[in-house]
Design a protein around this nucleic acid. Structure first.
Lengths: 119, 119
DNA sequence: TTGGCATACCTCAAACCAATAGGTATCGTC
DNA sequence: GACGATACCTATTGGTTTGAGGTATGCCAA
């Protein structure tokens, strides 16, 4: 068994971002959301239940999500929807996300494609 | 004083990414690097010395950076350069970074506005 | 010389987040 | 009843940035 990587890449705040986005498009329950993230990202983003469920609870505590028990398929499931505060939060997070992405692009900018230049 | 935010947004692994990139372009010493990150990103990315110095040491331990004491301005400074392993690491990190960015974009896709028609 | 400031390097504790693993309950099938 | 898939939840762990603090040197002013 190698090391456990709990913070592997660049996913930090990304779960919150995509959860707020996907739930804004359509209310879902946790288990459905886990799969939705995977499918919507083409398999690139994959967050386990141990990440999604606590996140949902946290966002609900903040008033950015609201849960409702609904009967789906003959069983009661906890369906989450985005509140007004949640949409605001998403807008902020998305803006920050873009900032970071653009910031990184500005730094990497010329090095990802431009060959070494005499300096 | 409100809460301390140690993991504010989406910067996770980003310091490693930009450090490897900037040092690959031109060897620098720590303090210079801190400012270089800030300037290269247009002020968007800003990592303190408490983040950069331990990172430099870690990357050096991994053999991805190499340090050398040099006389600059009449004083000895610890200048870091990227090794072959560091370039490899950067390539991997950059690829992963792009994956995540594209993954998020696929999810957010139509919700961020941006009617990029050139696509 | 003394004091203050910016530069330059370093380290530590705190806070936060995702990953892993484990636990519980229901439904359908055998 | 046993088993697996679905569905929900929690505790622990590991890694990372942040913030604050500490040390030392060079330059400038008094």
């Amino acid at each position: 068994m190698s090391k456990k990587r709990t913070n592997p890449d660049f996913v930090n705040g990304v779960p919150e971002l995509v959860v707020l986005d996907l739930l804004a498009k359509r209310p879902m329950y946790g288990y459905e959301l886990v799969q939705a993230i995977r499918e919507a990202s083409g398999g690139t983003l994959e967050f386990g239940e141990g990440c999604v469920y606590p996140l949902l609870h946290k966002l609900e505590e903040r008033g950015q999500l609201a849960s409702r028990r609904m009967e789906i398929g003959g069983r009661s499931r906890v369906v989450y929807r985005v509140t007004v505060g949640g949409r605001k939060r998403f807008a902020e997070a998305a803006a920050r996300w873009r900032e970071v992405v653009e910031g990184v692009q500005q730094v990497l900018g010329g090095s990802t494609s431009v060959p070494s230049r005499a300096g």
